[in-house]
Design a protein around this nucleic acid. Structure first.
Length: 567
RNA sequence: CGGGGUGUAGCGCAGUUUGGUAGCGCGUAUGGUUCGGGACCAUAAGGCCGCGGGUUCAAGUCCCGCCACUCCGACCA
C-alpha cells in the first residue's frame, strides 16, 4: 500500500473531545472517522486490523467445532415475539416497518435467529451438541455512546450459540470456550485482561463471565483478590463483613436528632461512624407503585443489579418526599408500618448490635438497636456494593477494585429460548426436551480499541504484530534521489512478493514527518533506507516498541524482517 | 431522559462582552532553497460563521425556535 494513496487523515493535534487515549489516537492516526453519534467509519488500516482479529477468532471458533453462519440484520417482529423479547427490550432495539407496513427490527443479538435456524433441523439428542457463530454488524441504539470505538451504536460482533442435551455438556463446552477466549485475547496482543464472573442481565441464564481489559478507561468495576484470584464484576461481587457492635447490647432508646437526616450529618451530630447506622434506601417497582425498601449498613451502598436479581423485577429509585407512609430521612426497620412493600435486609446487618436507625418519626432516631433481638428478620440478602479493601469471599484477604472494558462475554443461557420458541428434541427414551444453550460474544471494534488503549506511548499507537495493519513501514529518506527511489521500489516489490505487508511511505517530505507518522500509526517495524545506509550497503530496521534496532546488509534485510515478524 | 459545553476554511481555534470589510496556526496548490525526528521564503486557492425565523440602515455578534456533536449522570445483551 502506498501511503500517498491511503485515504485517512492524520493530524498533529489531539482531538479536543476525546477523553480516552484509544479514542484520541485512533482519530489522530486516521483509523476512524465519526459519521454520527456512536457511528463510525473505519478506514483501510482499521479495517485491516479488524480482519486480522476476525481471522484469529474464526480459527479459534472453528477449532472448538464452530460453524460460521450469517444471520439477517433485519428480522420480522414475530421472531422476537416468540421469545418475548420484542416487549421486554426497550428503545435500544430499532423497530421500523417495511413498505407493506410489517413491523421489523434491527438485530442487536441473535439468539432468536439461532434457534430459528436450528429448531427444525434438530430432532434427536444425537445431533447435539453443536455450535454456530457469525461475525456481523449489530445495531443497538445506546442511550449514550462514548469513548471512540469503546461504546458505539453500530458495531461488528462475533456472536456464537451452542446447543446441548444437558447441563454437564454445556458446562464442559463452556469451559472450552472459556479457554478459546483466553487464546483469542492473548493472540490479538491483549495483555492485562481477566475473565470475571458477571451478571447475566437481559440475556437470562445463570453462569456468565466477562472478559475485561483492566484499564482506568474502563466503564465497569471489578473486584479482584490478588491472593486467591477471585474476580467478579461489581454487579455480582461478594465480600465478607464482620458484624458491627459491642459485647453488651444496650437497651433501645429514642434520641433527638433534630433535622439531621443525611447519614453524614447524622453521624456528625451523634459523633458516631456511618457503619453504626442502619440506612434505608427505597425504590419503586417499575410500572407500579409498590415500594421496595432496603435496609443496609450506613457506610455501604445498594447494588441495584443484585437487588433486581433478588426481587426479579425492574426497579427505579423512588422519591420519598411525597410518601404518606414513610418519613424521609427517619425511616427505620422498627415500628415501620408499610402496606404493599417488599422489605430487604442486607447481610451487613446480620448480628449487629448497638446500632442507630430512624425512628419513623421526624427529628428522632433509635439507638441501641440489636438486629437479632429487636427485629424479626427471616432472611438476609447480599445487596451491598463491594468496597475497596473488604474481605474476599473465598480467602478473606483484601479485595481491590479495578476498572475494566468488557471485550467479550460468555453465558450459560439455559432453555430460555429453546423453551419459549418451542425447540424440542427427543432423548434416548424418546421423550421430548428443550436443549440448553450457551452464547458467546466478542466485539471486534471494541477489541481493537482495547488493544489501542493498552498499547501506546507518547508518540502514538503500538500495534502487536498479530493484528497490525501492516508489518512494515517502508521509509525511504530523500526519495527525490533516484537511487533511493529505485532501491525502495525494489524492496517494496520483494517484500510484497515474500508475503510481507508493507505500507510504503512514498511521499517526498522531510524525515521528521515520516517518522512521526510511522510512530503515530503504530506500525511494528520501520525500515529506513537513506543515502547514509545505502553508502554502507545497509538498511535500518527499528521496531516500534524500541526493542530492536538493526542495520542489516541490504540483501539480508528481507530475511531479518521475516524473522522479526515471526517472533 | 436530566444537567453542562461547543458549532466560524480539510483540522485545531480566535473574533460574539460593546453589531460596522471574515481572521490566526496547521494542512493544501505553485515556484525556489533545504531535508535522519513534524524545515524555510514567496505567492495562491479555500467560508451559507450549524439551520430557520426575528430586530436593525447593517447580524458571526442581539432575540426566539430548532438541529447536531460532546462531556457528566440515568440506561446498557
Amino acid at each position: 500500500m502506498l501511503l500517498s494513496k491511503l485515504v485517512s487523515e492524520r493530524t498533529k493535534e489531539m482531538p479536543a473531545d476525546a477523553q480516552i487515549r484509544s479514542h484520541a489516537l485512533l482519530v489522530r492516526a486516521g483509523y476512524i472517522k465519526l459519521v454520527a453519534n456512536g457511528i463510525w467509519t473505519l478506514s483501510c488500516p482499521a479495517k485491516r486490523i479488524c480482519s486480522k482479529i476476525e481471522k484469529i477468532i474464526r480459527e479459534e471458533m472453528d477449532a472448538i467445532g464452530g460453524q460460521e453462519v450469517s444471520f439477517p440484520v433485519v428480522m420480522p417482529k414475530e421472531l422476537w415475539e416468540e421469545s418475548g423479547r420484542y416487549a421486554a427490550i426497550g428503545e435500544e432495539m430499532v423497530r421500523f416497518e417495511d413498505r407493506c407496513g410489517r413491523p421489523m427490527v434491527l438485530g442487536m443479538t441473535h439468539e432468536e435467529a439461532a434457534v430459528h435456524l436450528c429448531k427444525n433441523w434438530v430432532s434427536s439428542y444425537q445431533q447435539l451438541p453443536f455450535m454456530i457463530y457469525q461475525i456481523q454488524t449489530k445495531f443497538r441504539d445506546e442511550a449514550r455512546s462514548r469513548g471512540g470505538l469503546i461504546r458505539v451504536r453500530e458495531f461488528v460482533m462475533k456472536d456464537a450459540y451452542s446447543f446441548h442435551a444437558d447441563k454437564e455438556d454445556l458446562e464442559a463446552y463452556y469451559d472450552k470456550v472459556y479457554e478459546a477466549y483466553n487464546r483469542i485475547f492473548k493472540r490479538i496482543g491483549m495483555k492485562d485482561f481477566v475473565a470475571v464472573k458477571s451478571d447475566s442481565g437481559m440475556m437470562g441464564g445463570n453462569v456468565a463471565h466477562e472478559y475485561m481489559l483492566l484499564t482506568e478507561a474502563g466503564e465497569d468495576t471489578i473486584a479482584i483478590c490478588a491472593d486467591c484470584g477471585y474476580k467478579a464484576n461489581i454487579e455480582v461481587a461478594e465480600s465478607v463483613r464482620e458484624p458491627i457492635g459491642d459485647e453488651i447490647s444496650e437497651d433501645i432508646a429514642e434520641v433527638y436528632t433534630a433535622d439531621k437526616t443525611e447519614i453524614a450529618e447524622l453521624c456528625d451530630y451523634l459523633k458516631i461512624r456511618p457503619l453504626r447506622v442502619i440506612k434505608a434506601v427505597s425504590y419503586n417497582i417499575k410500572g407500579s407503585d409498590q415500594t421496595v425498601l432496603v435496609f443496609i449498613r450506613g457506610d455501604l451502598e445498594v447494588n441495584e443489579a443484585k437487588l433486581k436479581k433478588i426481587i426479579k423485577k425492574d426497579i427505579a429509585p423512588s422519591n420519598l418526599q411525597d410518601s404518606k407512609e414513610l418519613v424521609a430521612g427517619n425511616i427505620g426497620p422498627i415500628g415501620l408500618r408499610l402496606n404493599n412493600a417488599i422489605i430487604i435486609y442486607d447481610k451487613s446487618l446480620q448480628n449487629c448490635n448497638n446500632m442507630y436507625c430512624g425512628a419513623n418519626k421526624p427529628e428522632y432516631h433509635l439507638k441501641g438497636v440489636d438486629v437479632q433481638r429487636d427485629m424479626q428478620i427471616t432472611a438476609f440478602y447480599d445487596v451491598a456494593k463491594v468496597k475497596e479493601g473488604e474481605s474476599c469471599p473465598v480467602c478473606g484477604k483484601a479485595l481491590s477494585l479495578r476498572n475494566g472494558i468488557e471485550v467479550g462475554n460468555i453465558f450459560q443461557l439455559g432453555d430460555k429460548y429453546t423453551k419459549s420458541m418451542n425447540m424440542a428434541v427427543l432423548d434416548s427414551e424418546g421423550k421430548a426436551f428443550n436443549p440448553i444453550m450457551g452464547c458467546y460474544g466478542i466485539g471486534i471494534g471494541r477489541a481493537l480499541a482495547s488493544v489501542a488503549e493498552e498499547s501506546n506511548d507518547e508518540y502514538g499507537l503500538i500495534w502487536p504484530m498479530s493484528i497490525a495493519p501492516w508489518h512494515v513501514y517502508l521509509c525511504p529518506l530523500r526519495i527525490d534521489n533516484p537511487e533511493i527511489k529505485q532501491k525502495a521500489d525494489e524492496l517494496y516489490n520483494q517484500m510484497t512478493k515474500a508475503g510481507i505487508e508493507v505500507l510504503y511511505d512514498d511521499r517526498d517530505i522531510s524525515p521528521g514527518v515520516k517518522f512521526s507518522d510511522c510512530d503515530l500509526m503504530g506500525i511494528p517495524l520501520r525500515l529506513v533506507i537513506s543515502p547514509k545506509t545505502l553508502a554502507n550497503n545497509q538498511t535500518e530496521i527499528q521496531s516500534r516498541d524500541r526493542r530492536h534496532k538493526l542495520n542489516p546488509n541490504t540483501e539480508d534485510t528481507i530475511r531479518v524482517i521475516q524473522e522479526l515478524i515471526k517472533e
